[in-house]
């Protein structure tokens, strides 16, 4: 690559060559100077970096359907598939919520790498049925996602959620790093410029929360609102220091189309992981609602609790996320 300029034997010829070479060289040197100066001028930063930004302009869309109204159905029955069918019919039918061409995201609770029988995660049977109903209603696609506590691949496979999603025609969105973006929820205390699984919402038009009803030692109960914790990234475990306020933040962040609570079995002890059949109680209930606060208030009954026992319910209600008085929504009680 070296460029060797040969000797010039003729002194006379040299003068002309030198002049020409000098001019070319000067032009190149001048261009280099101008390039360095220009680059320096445009990229000059007298102040240096400032403190990290406090907010982000990103937000989650509102997936609720106001025309559908505030509704809640409480279904009694031992069969999850039948129960969720009856529940959806009772709140107006799946067609009210899922239109032809909709892209549906189902946020399951896949928090732990445990088998479905332990009911620490969304049960595959209810998931399969919900996916089937959405596709039957004309949904263009159904995706299932969560950012679990245990290793994601293990959680989706061992809970049976992965297989249920695949066999029923839904896709699975695993929580890749690239899917998280920083988000600020207006009015939230803690979700400010915080990583959220926004990438899973690409193109999504409807959002359904599908979670079990579980005892939770820190917050008292894990149901629909607590389930949104699985959309949060980063060092989210610090939020346990003020979990009720954080669950209220979650309820402000997510405005779902529907939430569905599976209380066919309720985890009444050793939550939220459970780990034994003896932690479960057969309660034969599925709750379907457009109001996540009302759904959780109704679910609390299965845990033997009232809203006053669960400060996050009261806080979410005060923040305008819904009502804890689910009776005021005239719940439709059916048996499947």
């Amino acid at each position: 690559m070296s460029k060797k300029i040969p000797k010039i034997p003729e002194e006379a010829a040299r003068a002309g060559m030198d002049r020409r070479d000098f001019i070319i060289r000067s032009v190149k040197a001048g261009a280099a100077l101008a390039a360095a100066g220009g680059l320096g001028y445009f990229l000059y930063d007298p102040a240096g970096p400032g403190p990290a930004p406090e907010t982000s302009s990103l937000a989650l869309p509102d997936f609720s359907i106001p025309e559908a109204g505030k509704k809640i159905a409480i279904v009694t029955g031992p069969d999850r598939a039948k129960s969720v069918n009856s529940g959806l019919k009772a709140v107006g039918g799946i067609e009210t919520f899922i239109k032809k061409g909709d892209r549906v995201l189902i946020k399951v609770n896949a928090a732990f790498a445990t088998p479905p029988a332990l009911c620490a995660t969304t049960h595959p049977e209810i998931l399969s049925e919900l996916v089937r109903l959405c596709l039957a209603a004309g949904a263009a696609s159904v995706a299932v996602t969560d950012n679990p506590i245990n290793n994601p691949e293990s959680c989706f496979e061992l809970s049976g959620i992965g297989e249920a999603a695949r066999s029923s025609g839904a896709s699975l969105i695993l929580p890749k790093d690239s899917l998280f973006s920083n988000l600020t929820v207006p009015g939230a205390n803690f979700i400010r410029n915080w990583p959220v699984l926004l990438g899973a919402f690409q193109g999504v038009t409807k959002l359904i929360g599908l979670s079990p009803i579980k005892d939770h030692h820190r917050s008292g109960a894990s149901m629909s609102m607590k389930n949104w914790y699985g959309l949060i990234g980063g060092r989210r475990n610090i939020f346990h220091q003020d979990i009720h306020t954080f669950i209220r933040d979650l309820a402000l962040m997510v405005k779902p189309t529907l939430v569905i609570l599976d209380g066919t079995f309720t985890m009444i002890s050793n939550g939220p992981t459970g780990g034994s059949i003896s932690d479960l109680k057969k309660t034969d209930t599925v709750i379907v609602s457009t109001d996540q606060v009302a759904a959780d208030a109704a679910g609390a009954v299965l845990l033997g609790k009232v809203p006053a026992d669960l400060p996050f319910l009261v806080k979410a209600e005060q923040a305008g996320a819904g009502t804890t008085d689910f009776g005021s929504l005239n719940p439709v009680r059916v048996t499947a």
Binding site: A29, L33, A36, G40, L43, D45, A47, G48
Partner: peptide, 24 residues
């Protein structure tokens, strides 16, 4: 620093003088 930060912080602009003189 220019490559990593796409900026030229404050006093680092002195380097333009060295660069200029070296080019000449």
């Amino acid at each position: 620093n220019l490559i990593t930060t796409r900026s030229l912080y404050s006093g680092l602009a002195w380097a333009l003088a060295t660069i200029g003189l070296t080019i000449v």
